[in-house]
Write a protein that binds this DNA or RNA. Sequence first.
DNA 1: TCATCGATTCATGCACTATTGAAAAGCATG
DNA 2: CATGCTTTTCAATAGTGCATGAATCGATGA
Lengths: 117, 117
Amino acid sequence: MAHGCGSQNSDDIVARKLTALAHPVRLATIRQLAAAGPTGLAAGRLAERLDVAPNALTFHLQKLAAAGLVESHREGQFVYYRAEFDALLALTDHLVGACCSEAEESCGPRCPTSRDR
Amino acid sequence: MAHGCGSQNSDDIVARKLTALAHPVRLATIRQLAAAGPTGLAAGRLAERLDVAPNALTFHLQKLAAAGLVESHREGQFVYYRAEFDALLALTDHLVGACCSEAEESCGPRCPTSRDR
DNA sequence: TCATCGATTCATGCACTATTGAAAAGCATG
DNA sequence: CATGCTTTTCAATAGTGCATGAATCGATGA
């Protein structure tokens, strides 16, 4: 505990991203943005779909952006948000990346260690 | 609605699991258990490896167990914990499951929608 | 039974996060 | 410039989670 806070461990970075995802509104947000694809969605339209107050949505979007999971760009009066797909995929890799690396037996047919990549 | 799992929304269940994972100690715990494979690790050995107080580790392990991400079984005076691999893999599926479902263009070569399963 | 080791439970204090409502800033149109 | 729409900022509150230390429970062996 309380070992150096200067250079952050990879686990800490991933934990920060998971913290950003670990909220019903933010998770639904990411899924909406993921479904919307590279074009993204305007903040207002997102607020409508999720039935969330605009200011509340901004709060959550900022957390997602701080974690590097979404990006925003302005187009006229609208602000479009889109998911950072690379960050999402890297996240899933990290979760089961070291699976069974120290074990003799594999954890199952879907184990990333046991199937070719 | 791919799986009709109980009363709670699938997003809420996933959010609960992500909440359980979204902590440096718990994330490191899962990775240690994932690396250890189906055999698992004793709580004390886990505490040593992670440099965490035993009672603190119990606190975190209970959160992981409540989310269905780990399981425990007693062997003599030791309590072994092992990762629930199915729950972990289901989690990663959910994250990018609906990726680009509403978009004309795919988000990339690794998009789950764009590659066969 | 007593002593020891492993694991858990309990209680307290602290910090952080989410929610809400009101207000303000940025952009477009008449 | 004035108006309306979109988005963000701010402030106050309530709620939740985490860390810490002491005490407890369970199992093992002398």
